[in-house]
Structure formats: C-alpha cells, structure tokens
Design a protein around this nucleic acid. Sequence first.
RNA 1: GUGGCUGUAGCUCAGUGGUAGAGCACUGGAUUGUGGCUCCGGUUGUCGCGGGUUCGAUCCCCGUCAGUCACCCCA
Length: 417
Amino acid sequence: MAKLRSVKGMNDLLPSEIPRWHRLEQVFRDTVHRYGFGEVRTPVVEPTELFVRGIGDTTDIVEKEMYTFEDKSEKSLTLRPEGTASCVRAYLEHAVGNVEPVSKWYYIGPMYRRERPAKGRYRQFYQAGCEIYGDPGPYVDAELIDLVVTYLGRLGITDVEVLINSLGSGDARARYRQALLDYLRPRAAELSEDSQRRLERNPLRVLDSKAAQDQAIAAEAPSLLDHLDDEDRAHFDGLIATLDAFGTPYRVEPKLVRGLDYYTRTLFEVKARSADLGAQSTLCGGGRYDGMIGDLGGPPTPAIGFAIGLERLLISLPDETPAPTLDAFVVVQRPELAVEGAKLARELREAGLRVDADLRGNSMKSQLRRADKSGARYAVVVGERELAEGSVQLKDLHAGTSTSVARAALNETLAGE
RNA sequence: GUGGCUGUAGCUCAGUGGUAGAGCACUGGAUUGUGGCUCCGGUUGUCGCGGGUUCGAUCCCCGUCAGUCACCCCA
C-alpha cells in the first residue's frame, strides 16, 4: 500500500476511465454549441472576497466548505467552490456587457468543496455549466432547462425529474420572507436543531429541510408562489407556457429553495430517479440571479445559469463498449527484429494511423495477446521470411485471417479499410 | 461536523491464536513464427498503521488512519 495518496475526496482518473469522461464532455459541448454558447475558462483560484460576496456569507459553502489560504502577499485566495461567481467576475472584468447585449457562456472544470465525501460527492468534483447574461427571460429560462434535459437524453439518461419554482424578486421576496418568519417563529420550538439555526439567517431553507418534524411544519407554511408580485408571476407563467410549448416535462415544486443566496425568480433542479446515486440524486441545479452582477459592482444585468455534476452523470451513464483506440499493432517474430518493428510502426503513424507495438523482447504469443486486448483491428507481423521478401503479414484480428502484403503497399491497404 | 460498515496479492474476495489462499490479471510453455478457447507451470503480499493481551496475533482488545454508506448540505 503506497504511503503517498491522493488528498481525501480528490480522485485520480486513469486512462481506462477517461473515454467515459470524454463522452460526457463531447456531448455537452456539442449540445451547448447547438444553443449558441461559447466556452469560457477562468482560473481555479479566485480572491476569497468574490465568493463571500457572490455566493453569500450565510451559505454552507462560504461558511464552512471553502479551501481558503493566504498567498505570499497575504491576500486571501480560495479554490473555486462553484463556477458562477468566477464567470460573473470575468464578465465584469472584461466589460463584456458593453460589447454585446446578451452573452451565453459555458464551462467545464473542477470545483472544490471541503465536505465529507460520499457517493457522488467529492472534494474535487467536475461541473459543466452554462450562464446567460443580459436576457431577462423567461424564454431563456425554458431554453436552459430544455438544454439540460436534451443533454441528459443524448447521454441516455432519461429517467429524470425536473423541478421548478420561483423565488420572486425584490419586495415580493422580502414580503414572503416576513410572512414565513411570522409563521415559523411561534413554532420554532418544534423545529429541528438545524432549522432553528436557519430560522433567522435564511428562513427559506427551513422549507426544504428533510427532518420529519420540519416537513410537517413546512407543509402548512405560506406558499412562495402566493407572494409573487405581478411581474414575477408573469415571468413564471411565461416559463411554464414555454416549457409546455416545448413539451418538456416538469413539476412545480413550491418548496424548492436551494442553498445559494443569490437566486431570484426561476429556480430549477434536475433529479435522477434511479436509486444508483443514493442521497445525491441531484444531477443539475440552476436558477436566475438577476441581482448578483449589480451586487458585485456591475450594471444591473439579468442572469441565469445552471451547473451539472459530472461524477453523478457518470454513475447514471449507461455502459457502452469503448471505441478501439488503435488501428494496428506491430508484432515482431524475434527480438532482433525490434528495430524493424519500431520503424514500421513509425511509418504507419506518419501515415496517420494509430499504432502501437510491444518490443520488450517477449514472445509472439504475448505480443499477439496484447494486440488482441488493445482492440486494434490488425496485427502487422514482421518476420524473417517477410523481411527477406520485402513484405509483411497483415492479420485481421477480428476475422482471424492473414494475408501477405508488400511492405510498400501497407499504408494504402490499411488506410483503405 | 455526527453515526454505521469495511481494511488480506494490481483487482474481487476466502481464511486460521502457530506469520497465508482462490479466481481474475500479468507471465513462460504445450505450438523452435501467430491472439481470442483449453491444459500445465511461474511472479506478486511489511494480512492499513501503532500499541496491548499472549510463549506466539493476520485473527482477540484499544487507538489511529483510510475507504465507503447514511445524516447535513449540495453538483
């Protein structure tokens, strides 16, 4: 057992599992490109203040989950716990809003949260996400939800549930908060310990508590949707009408709240229905954050985004046979022919083929076994006889047949397949 | 942060108070130049780490670390 290990909750991804990741990423890129998004790449490290102000200092993420450290100039830096704040920072820093009215960005990359690892939850984890700046919706809200469902569908993940809700905005949200407090305070003693703590700091969070005694109280609580003002209501109705027009299935969940402070109006979540993920069934979370850009010192700009947890997708992803990674495998009859074999492999690679060889001096049996396992369609055998007559033996590993091919014609023969 | 379960070969796991085994994988051969099937052989371990009980611990006890699952929260 090695003494040097990866950091708890941060995992290696070895070459054998990378094809599945490539698939997740390629299908994501292809899908978001269809919707007009462009990729953005931001640093993994940001000033701590960005997350404190952007995500909110009452959130669990900022309160206890960030990897924060001081660099040598005594600035406080933090490993990004999510992607939205960084994107907003970049959007403002480059004054992108002055150049184009609407920006549609996507990102794929690692995020860091110091939580207790569990199935589908890691300390370094990968998210793919989208952000739209400058469009107040509600059509883009529906577009994003549709995009996520489409993406998952293209991966073969169809057993999902889309939950939507509206948190309202501005005064409506403040009024609701007050109404909720008025309802909850007299019942505070009956709430769970966690919810009692949440009560004053972020009462909305009591609504999605999983504790049984909280759920009973939450069930009778005033509904968010009843407190929306006319504009919020119209926005939410517009979202629903658009989803209906798309034929995208969804469920209105008035108690859907989510843990980040910055959300306004539209909130959504996509959950896997299969049991594979245990308690971490949320595949995707997102929502509108019309206030954040202004809060961070920019011009008031409507914004909406989502993030998908790629590890969780991977758990839900149906298995597929991986594509072969090699076209041909060179085999030499005797160790003395290693240089010939290496040269041949090089020539084939130069011709654009994916080629490997095993020139450690082991037996042909062993070399052919590796050729077989590599998934290569062909083995190219170099032996005494072949060398003498300037040919090579081309063995079709699927069919089990062999043919003699003039060495000069090998490139063409292989390329023609 | 709290609780449960588990740590034996690269992987999946069996096992006994007298310091270890199987299957897979890897590898040699049966076939002095031909994979996938079959057969025969071979390599691989500080039995997670530290301490205690014992003549003796991989096994029993305590601690610790790690993994995992659940809670919390989230992706």
